[in-house]
Design a protein around this nucleic acid. Structure first.
Lengths: 335, 335
DNA sequence: GCAATGTTGTCCCACTTTTGTCCAGACAAA
DNA sequence: TTTGTCTGGACAAAAGTGGGACAACATTGC
C-alpha cells in the first residue's frame, strides 16, 4: 500500500539551514562545520550563495553520529558510515552498554534465520505466529530485526501499529487466547519502552507530557508516541496510563512542558472522558496544545472540536505538527 | 556445547577505542590499562597514533573477567585464560553461587559484597529525589548505575524493592503526587522489563509462568520475579498483570511450564483472589507448584495453606526453592 | 595473632592527540 | 542596520599514553 513509501526513505532534498540542524541535533553550529572540515562528516549541498543546505538524511546521520560518539566511538570511525551502518552501530552499542552482571553469553549470535520477510505484512504475520506459539524469544528477535530494517517512525506505523490492531482483532475473534494477548502486550510494553532509551538527550529539548486519562488502561499507544517524539527532539515525560486530569495539569506545570498528548483506545465511550478532557483543558495553560489520539479519539470528535484540542489523524501528521511547534519554540526562545 | 560455535564467530578485528570498551564492560579506563600493564589481560592493537584498539573478542574477555572477579576469582588466576575457559569458570561459579544455602556466607571479597545499607539508602533517596523533581534522565541514570554496582538479585532486593515501598508510602502520605508515582512506575516498568533481555537462552530452560491474578493491576512485583528467575536459568513466560485463572492454566498447559508464580499486592483483600487461586490450583496439573508472593500474600495465609501453595517469605527463598526444583527437574529429565 | 608480602583499584604526572570552541574579516539575508 | 553564515586559523579543553605512587585489603609465614 501507500504506506510502503514512508519506509526508510528519508528525504534527501537539501533545504535546512545550519541553525535548524544545530537545534535538531543538539550540536553547535561551529561543531557541525568543524566536523565537516576535518572529517567530511556531512557534505551538504549549497545554496547559490554558498549557504549550507542540509537534508533530513543529513540530520538523521548527524543525530546518529552524536549518539555514537556518546557511546565512545571515535569520530574518525563513524564519520564515513552510511545512515544504515550508523543505526546498526548505535543500536548495537545501546544493547550492550552498561555492565552486565550475568555470566550468560552476551553476544546474540547472528545464527539468524533464513526467514527473510521483507514485506511488512509478512513481518506482522511472523510475529503473530510467534505469539500464538508463545515463542517469546522468536517474538523478541522479530521485533529487533524489524527495527534494524527501517527507521523508528516508519516501523511504528507500518509494523507495530498494525500488529497491535491484529492482536486485538484476533483476540476478539477467538483466534488468540487472552493469555496470548497478555504475553504479547507485556512484551511490547517492554520493547517499546526500551526504545526511548536509544535516544540521548541534551537537556535543551522541549518537554511533552504523554499519558492516558482516567479509565484508559491501555498504554501502548501512548508509549509509541513517547518513542516517536523522542526521535524528533522532544523529551517525553511519560506518565503511564490512567492519570487523572489534575495530575496531568500539575505535572505539566512542574515540568514546564510545552505540549500534552493523550491516547484514547478502550473503552471508547467511557463517560469519564469528556469530564476529564474538559477539566484538563481548563486547568492547562492556554498556550499549551493538547493532543488527543488513538483509535477512540474519533468517538469524541465533537468534544475535541468544542474544546479546541488537536487530533492529528496519523502519526505522521502528529510529528509534523510537533516539529513545527518545536521549531517555533526555538525561534521564540532565541529571540 | 553449542556455545563453541558462537565463540568462534566473535570478531577479532580491532576497532573499538578504550572509552567504548569501558562503557560496555563497566570497567574504568584506568582499570583496563592497569590490567594490561600488570597482567597483559588484553593486548589490544594500536592505531597509528598509539591509541588502543580493541576487538569484540577482547571486550568479551574483559566482561567475563569482570564477572569472574565479582564471583571472587583473583585477577592473576583468570588473566591468562582463554575466553572459552573463562566462560566455563564463570558459569560454574554462578551455579555454585545460586545453590548456596546461605547467601550471606558466599565467599566474596569485600569489594564485591552487597552494598552497605547506608549506600543503598542513599541510592534510594537519590532516586526518590529524581522522581520528585521529575528528572527522568537522572532517574534512569541512577537505575543503571545501581545495576553495575551489584548483581541483579541483590540489586532487586536491596534497592528496587525498598524503592517501590518508599514510592508507595510517600504517595500515600502525600509527599509525592500521583503524577510522580505514575512516572516512576512507568520508568521502572521499562527498566525492569528490559533486564530480561540481558539474558540469552539456550532453549533448554524450564519455563515458569509469571503474572498476577484478576483484579491485581500492579505488575512490578511480578516483573521483578521474571527478571530474577531468568538469571537462575529459568525461562519466564511473562503474562503481565490481571490474568484470569483459566488463562493462566491454559498457558501453563500450552507452554509446558514447570511452575507458576503469582504476585499479590493491591488490593490485598480483593474478594476475587480466593476464587481465582482455588480455580487455578484445581485446573493446574498437581505436579506444577504454584508460588504466591507479594506484599498481599500474607493476607491469604490460610488460603495458601489450605490449597497447598508455596509462599516463600523472601526473594532469596523463592530462588532457593526454584533452583532445587530446576535441578530436580534436570535429573528427572535425564533419567 | 602479627608482621611481611602480594594483590588490586585509584590517582597523579608530563606529554601527545583529538576534539570543541572562539575569533576575524568578508559577505548575504532580513 | 542588524543579524547570521562563510572561511581559515588559533586556542583550549578533553581524552589518551606510559610511568609510577599509594592505600586498602588479602594472604602467607612465623
Amino acid at each position: 500500500m501507500a504506506t510502503l513509501e514512508t519506509i526508510s526513505s528519508i528525504d534527501t532534498a537539501p533545504r535546512h539551514p545550519i541553525r535548524l540542524v544545530a537545534n535538531r541535533t543538539g550540536l553547535t553550529v561551529d561543531l557541525i562545520r568543524a566536523w565537516e572540515k576535518r572529517y567530511h562528516v556531512v557534505e551538504p549541498a549549497r545554496s547559490d550563495t554558498k549557504r549550507r543546505l542540509y537534508s533530513d538524511y543529513d540530520i538523521e546521520r548527524l543525530r546518529m553520529i552524536r549518539i555514537a560518539k556518546q557511546n565512545g566511538r571515535r569520530l574518525v570511525d563513524v564519520a564515513p558510515m552510511s545512515l544504515e551502518a550508523l543505526r546498526d552501530v548505535v543500536s548495537e552499542d545501546s544493547r550492550f552498554d552498561a555492565a552486565q552482571d550475568n555470566p550468560a553469553e552476551v553476544y546474540r549470535p547472528s545464527w539468524s534465520n533464513p526467514l527473510e520477510s521483507t514485506d511488512t505484512q509478512d513481518a506482522v504475520d511472523a510475529m503473530l505466529f510467534a505469539i500464538q506459539t508463545m515463542d517469546q524469544h522468536r517474538f523478541d528477535q522479530l521485533l529487533q530485526e524489524g527495527l534494524v530494517k527501517q527507521a523508528l517512525p516508519a516501523y511504528l506505523e507500518t509494523v507495530i501499529g498494525p500488529l497491535l490492531r491484529e492482536i486485538g482483532e484476533s483476540t476478539r475473534l477467538g483466534k488468540l487466547r487472552i493469555a496470548h494477548e497478555h504475553m504479547a502486550t507485556a512484551h511490547l510494553r517492554t520493547f517499546i519502552g526500551a526504545l526511548r532509551f536509544r535516544e540521548t538527550f541534551t537537556g535543551s529539548e522541549p518537554k511533552i507530557i504523554i499519558t492516558t486519562p482516567t479509565g484508559q488502561l491501555h498504554e501502548l499507544g501512548a508509549l509509541m508516541i513517547a518513542a516517536l517524539v523522542s526521535v524528533d527532539g522532544w523529551l517525553p515525560v511519560y506518565l503511564g496510563p490512567n492519570t487523572p486530569a489534575d495530575e496531568i495539569a500539575a505535572c505539566a506545570m512542574q515540568s514546564g512542558a510545552r505540549a500534552v498528548s493523550l491516547s484514547l483506545t478502550y473503552p471508547a465511550d467511557d463517560p469519564r472522558i469528556p469530564t476529564e478532557l474538559t477539566r484538563l483543558r481548563s486547568q492547562l495553560d492556554q498556550k499549551i496544545p493538547l493532543f488527543v489520539g488513538g483509535s477512540a479519539a474519533a468517538h469524541h470528535r465533537q468534544l475535541i472540536g468544542r474544546l479546541g484540542l488537536q487530533s492529528p489523524p496519523s502519526l505522521n501528521e502528529l510529528r509534523q505538527t510537533l516539529n513545527e511547534l518545536r521549531d517555533r519554540g526555538f525561534r521564540l526562545q532565541s529571540a
